[in-house]
Structures are given as structure tokens and as C-alpha cells.
Design a protein around this nucleic acid. Structure first.
Lengths: 133, 133
DNA sequence: TATAAAGGTTCCAGTAACTGGAAGTTCAAG
DNA sequence: CTTGAACTTCCAGTTACTGGAACCTTTATA
């Protein structure tokens, strides 16, 4: 498929997809006319990149995560070690996100949402009183 | 407290903290010697920035999130609307992170972790067969 | 008290990860 | 056969830092 379709399916702009190719994150085929030709496997890779980037992993971390899926030559002890390290990081991100969500929820549920500017939660969390962790 | 202590407490490099001041995300006091002097409120702001940045929110989104806490002049209906929009996004991030974690867990639990390079999960997820969503 | 190291300051240049735009090619519709 | 959308490469600009120089202040040690 062309880059437009790959873009739509992966949620990444075409520009970004070309950039990812430049830095060696994928290597789509080329059709006879010079157009890039993306396989489902490429799209899967791109979706994965879209997700993990949006979740705060660096491109290099994404490259490492991708290597867990793609590099069959890598020894499995190695794969396991990398995956376990990333798991710890993901669990931390999960609990931080959960905490952020709970705070915002609290904000939403306690704000009356009318025009009165005295939202009680804003006062409570403005920094003087509340310290997270 | 000095920038070094603020850096340690927030988990952000001093360089980044100065940069955040440059772009108007906080305004620490100055001591008589010209050194920046951070309050607990500043540190709280910085920790918040550290977290939300590492979770994939842009600096502008962080600025918006911070405004939920800091800007008491903002009308509460406005606060509520912004918070609700961010909540949707956070919930999406949460489910994506959970999915990523489950995939990696599966990888860890099914890899034998010895020197044999034939980790069965890698084959399964290499892209040809498996498509997420 | 001298002095060296550690930690602070500004400023400027470099990097990471895109992003926009120009200039040209190819394809699909009318 | 032409017009417009989608593709190509290339180069410049932006965001969010990050490293380094040159200098100042504080603190520990001789």
C-alpha cells in the first residue's frame, strides 16, 4: 500500500513515516514507480511506533522495543532482560498516569462547572498545601 | 532551595528547569546572590512537569494542565471542560500502556530465557501474523 | 587566610524528533 | 489530454531540550 494508506492505518503523518525510514526504523519495499510500498507488517511496526512514542518512549527506546519483536537472531535471555527492564518502566508510567487521572477526576467531580470562579480543588492543589508523594 | 536540590527533588536536570523558566512555566524567587530560590510549590510544579512530560504530553499541554491548578481566575466551567478533555486522552493512554504491558509480559513469561534463540513469542509477534486492533 | 572544588549564573551552539514548503513526478478522473 | 491529488527528494524551521564556555559564589581543606 502507498504511504497515504499506511499513514491512515498507523495514525502517523506521512512526513513522520519517511523520517522513521531515514533513521532506519523500517524498510518498506519500493514499487516500480518509485513509490514506497507498505506491507501489513510495516503498518504494524508503525502503529507500534505511534503508540510507544505517544506514551513517552524515546525513538531509541522504541527501536529497542521493536528489536524484541523483530530480531530473531537475538538470544532469548537478552530479549527477556530487555523486556523485563521495560516492564518496570511501563508499570511506573501506569501508576503515574493513574494518579494523574485520579487527580483530574477529582477536579472534574468537585468543580461545579458553572460560572463561579471558586473551584475548591484548584485551591487545594495549587501547590502550597498538597505535595504528591 | 537552590536549583540542585530542586533538580534532585523533581527528577529534572537543572538545565531543563532553567529552560522551563525561560519559557514561562515557573518563576522562582531569586536570592541576594542571584541564585534561584525554589519553594515547595515550585518543586511540586516541577514534579508535575517531569511526570506529564514523561507520559507523552507536550509542553503546551503541560502548560494547560498546570493552568488547571494554578489559575484561580479561570472560570470553573472552563477548568472542567479542559480537565474532561484531558481525561479522555489519559484514559486512552492508560489502555494503550496496559496493552503494551500485557504484550511484554506475555513475551517475558513465554521466553525460556536461556541461550536458545527460538523464543516462540518473537515469531508470533514479528508482524506477519499478528495485527493489533 | 589562601585555595581548590563544587555548584551556581548567562549565553550560545548542537541534538532529537519532527514539520513545513518548494520543486518535480506519477497516477486516476473527467 | 489535462487537472488535481498523492507521491518523490531535499532543505530549512521548530520544539524541547542538552552540552560547553566563561564567569561568579559558596564551601571544604591545607
Amino acid at each position: 500500500m502507498n504511504i497515504g494508506a499506511a499513514s491512515e492505518k498507523s495514525g502517523l503523518p506521512a512526513k513522520t513515516i519517511r523520517y522513521y525510514e531515514d533513521i532506519g526504523l523500517l524498510r518498506p519495499d519500493r514499487a516500480g514507480n518509485g513509490y514506497r510500498d507498505y506491507s501489513m507488517s510495516d503498518v504494524h511496526r508503525l502503529r507500534f511506533l505511534q503508540r510507544s512514542r505517544s506514551l513517552g518512549f524515546s525513538v531509541e527506546e522504541c527501536r529497542q522495543l521493536l528489536s524484541l519483536y523483530g530480531d530473531t537472531r537475538r538470544e532469548s535471555a537478552d530479549v527477556k532482560a530487555i523486556a523485563e527492564t521495560k516492564l518496570v518502566e511501563i508499570d511506573r508510567k501506569l501508576s503515574e498516569l493513574t494518579e494523574l487521572r485520579d487527580t483530574l477526576r477529582h477536579l472534574v467531580h468537585n468543580c461545579h462547572g458553572d460560572n463561579r470562579p471558586d473551584c475548591p480543588i484548584i485551591d487545594g492543589l495549587s501547590g502550597r498545601a498538597h505535595v504528591t508523594q
